[in-house]
Write a protein that binds this DNA or RNA. Structure first.
Lengths: 346, 346
DNA sequence: TGTTAGCACTCTATGATGCTGAGTGCTAAT
DNA sequence: ATTAGCACTCAGCATCATAGAGTGCTAACA
């Protein structure tokens, strides 16, 4: 265990390093007004904490830098809560108050707030379709054999897919098909729709449609559940302005990670499904390309149902208290706004 | 005017510079198997061409590099047509052959092909809504006062907007409203829809609806024409691997340009509306952030109607012949595929 | 008259060298 | 337990010399 004094010095050091992005030496600490120990004393303490694994030296005669273990300890035990400024609170409140937004705009706005206030890059996973339910489908015929199939969920999310209709199918038949689906599958979770068709609708469709085989195939393609939903970014280049990215070779891997929806999804996936803030520091992300980055996530929900994730990615040397507080406020505001918006939808 | 020999040497130099990204000296040229002049002769010729403004020296004792004027001359008069490899043609044909794609996927695929084959960054402006026409709208009510308004165009494009319904409006009234719009405004170009409502539908709505004022306001917001359509990128980080971007300070401005929809739109907007390939070299783009980049664009169309732009952005030191040929083939294939898909839509 | 060899000159890139300053570990004194 | 003092380390920076690639110019050549 660390002594009281070690804790004190450790906290100072981490805060200063987060602020100045340069290794902190014993002399610099001893010169502070709120420190009365000599540099030699501090040197001894720092050496001890290094031995315990909380600090590192970039090279043998440099100042100290927090290790990953150090950051982990810092966020687990030393976080002093930060208050957001009045101005920040006002801006957030306003952003989430306006009910006239499109859902997409609201989420993009969320991402923008996070990146503006943190100067890092923010990522928001759009509302997961997993537990959203089919409310209504519609087929709009564009030509003899091409149509657009529109899917509306209970949360107001709209998806559209271009489909090829069976040759020679009549308008009444299409209408009948739409009616059958809307009546029978309303309220079915999206990811269960294709299997529900398979189990429950095959017979009905065979009775009512002349082209039931092709229709079923078409529905399977069109209604297939795509787990990777939209990803929204804020301040995509913010993180590149951090001093740790002055080398282009650090930049490319990171950018490539952000370009891949699959990787970003994996990155933000909560390890266990517990709600609230999660922090993954450096290698804890298990992704070599971002081993010098930390990812902080918070989930948001409609009612009690978790439906998405907001996140900030920055260097391991991140202003953790600020980002955590902000993510907490923003995720809760977003949840509240969405719950209000969709309360009582079925 | 340049002499025959100067032209020959100029072409060699540009090709070599495009290939190796390093200033080309007289000695390097004279050593080539297809050159029989001595380095001194070549030196004299290069000096003359520098005086004419086609070449530049990064510093006084370095080899030569094409100037912007040089590149312009090169693309205007010296392009030798390039054949795509059999493999490339096969891949392109296959990509555009498959009719089962979503429109969005087809366009993303187009962007991916362009970036994969060029190793630069590609940009595709999705089908412009400007001349597309309203085919059908639909309102799906989510709750007492929130609904989703869905707009389908004659090209199969689907947009959706969340709207707030007037308090207490009845389902039959909503249905009536949808019917009126679908009957009266079908075929109206999207960008004229709001003004058409203003001019032609006000009276009808007043007669038929109890909440006509709020409804008109709602329609104006929901059907407002948004000129900036979707932008698709391919290989967003490709261009950053080019040696001219080894300095991070060159990277950030470029990335910020690519993040701004407005700027990208301006960048790709054809100067005059003439079709075909357009090349803008360095400063010709009138955008300081990308003064060392060239942008090559080609338009694509449905039938005879121009609806979008495909583009490649790379360093001024770009493999122009290859990119031009590829853009030509790809834009034509895309046009053909789209025309086939939407032929006869009304 | 066009071409080329030769040469002095220029400039970048590279690597060696030395110096400075910030930092450390260790020891001995307080 | 704390601190002053000192020898030591190392990155960063400036300086310097050198090599190499390239140029312009002049004079000789075909």
């Amino acid at each position: 265990m660390l002594t009281e004094r070690q804790l004190f010095l450790f906290k100072l050091l981490v805060n200063d390093y987060i602020r100045f992005a340069e290794p902190i030496g014993s002399r610099a600490i001893s010169k502070r007004d709120d420190v009365q120990y000599s540099s030699a004393t501090i040197r001894n303490e720092l050496a001890d904490m290094e031995e315990l694994g909380y600090l590192e030296k970039p090279h043998s005669s440099s100042g100290r830098v927090p290790s990953e273990k150090g950051y982990r300890f810092y966020v687990d035990h030393l976080l002093s809560p930060v208050m957001l400024s009045h101005q920040e609170m006002v801006n957030i409140k306003r952003a989430f108050h306006d009910q006239y937004y499109e859902l997409e705009k609201l989420i993009q706005e969320t991402a923008d707030i996070l990146s503006d206030f943190t100067h890092y890059t923010s990522i928001v996973l759009g509302p997961e379709l997993l537990e959203t339910k089919l409310k209504h489908i519609q087929i709009i015929r564009l030509s003899e054999d091409v149509a657009v199939l529109i899917i509306i969920t209970n949360t107001g999310h709209v998806e559209n897919r271009t489909v090829t209709l069976p040759k020679g199918i009549k308008a009444e038949e299409v209408e009948k098909l739409v009616n059958i689906i809307n009546i029978r599958l309303k309220g079915t979770p999206l990811y269960k729709v294709t299997s529900a068709i398979d189990r429950e609708l095959k017979a009905v469709l065979r009775q009512n449609l002349s082209h039931h085989k092709q229709v079923i195939k078409m529905l399977n393609v069109a209604l297939e559940y795509h787990p990777f939903d939209q990803i929204y970014f804020g301040g995509k280049t913010n993180i590149l302005s951090q001093p740790e990215f002055k080398d282009i070779n650090k930049v490319l891997p990171l950018l490539n990670v952000l370009e891949s929806k699959e990787i970003v999804h994996d990155l933000l996936k909560p390890v266990d499904n517990k709600p609230g803030i999660q922090i993954r520091i450096g290698q804890e992300n298990h992704l070599n390309e971002i081993k010098d980055c930390s990812v902080i996530t918070a989930s948001y929900s409609i009612g009690d149902e978790h439906i998405g994730t907001v996140a900030v990615i920055g260097p391991t040397r991140m202003t953790y208290p600020k980002v955590i507080t902000l993510l907490d406020v923003v995720s809760k505001s977003l949840s509240k706004s969405l719950t209000l918006r969709y309360q009582g939808y079925s």
